[in-house]
């Protein structure tokens, strides 16, 4: 009965197209990435990285990558969907970031385009209220609560091998 989510990671292996390779420099593509001790959503969080941080892929498992932060050299496991090749984060079309030796963070955040500044401008023009959207985003549940929700019906989320 507890086979469900423990199994889906293997299923993911079959269907997830590998976008990144070992040795490649990639960029964190989520606001806050949790680097875990094992390739599973319930594994212990070892460190956190921010959107745009550069990391190098050091190991791959189906659906997961172990990455090392370029700046701090801390490492840990992330789901593949939390990283993107740097090109996907749209470097400046002028190539300016590369030419001026800007920090890896500046390079990665280049081309952010639609951001908080643009939202604020749009909100003022259109008289749109984001209060309820902020409340909605507050409904993000911690992974251990999701695990409890699932275990109540006989499912489980993999810890990737943690004891």
């Amino acid at each position: 009965m507890r086979r469900s989510i423990a199994f889906f990671l293997f299923v993911l292996a079959a269907v997830t197209l590998s976008a990144v390779n070992v040795g490649q420099l990639v960029t964190i593509s989520v606001r806050e990435a949790e680097l875990r001790s094992n390739p599973g959503f319930l594994a212990t969080v070892q460190t956190r990285l921010a959107y745009g941080d550069s990391v190098r892929v050091v190991e791959k498992r189906p659906g997961w990558v172990r990455v090392q932060a370029v700046e701090t050299e801390m490492d840990g496991w992330l789901h593949e969907s939390a990283v993107a090749p740097p090109a996907d984060l749209r470097l400046s079309s002028t190539g300016r970031a590369g030419d001026t030796g800007a920090s890896t963070r500046e390079i990665a955040l280049a081309g952010r385009g639609f951001n908080q500044q643009i939202e604020a401008e749009y909100q003022e023009q259109q008289q749109i209220d984001f209060t309820m959207v902020d409340e909605m985003e507050g409904f993000l549940q911690p992974t251990d609560e999701l695990a409890a929700f699932l275990s109540a019906i006989g499912g489980s989320i993999s810890d990737g091998g943690d004891q």
Partner: peptide
């Protein structure tokens, strides 16, 4: 970018 998708999503949601 993922960040652009997020901000587009927020304004669609609002």
């Amino acid at each position: 970018t993922p960040e652009q998708e997020y901000y587009i999503g927020r304004s669609v949601a609002a």
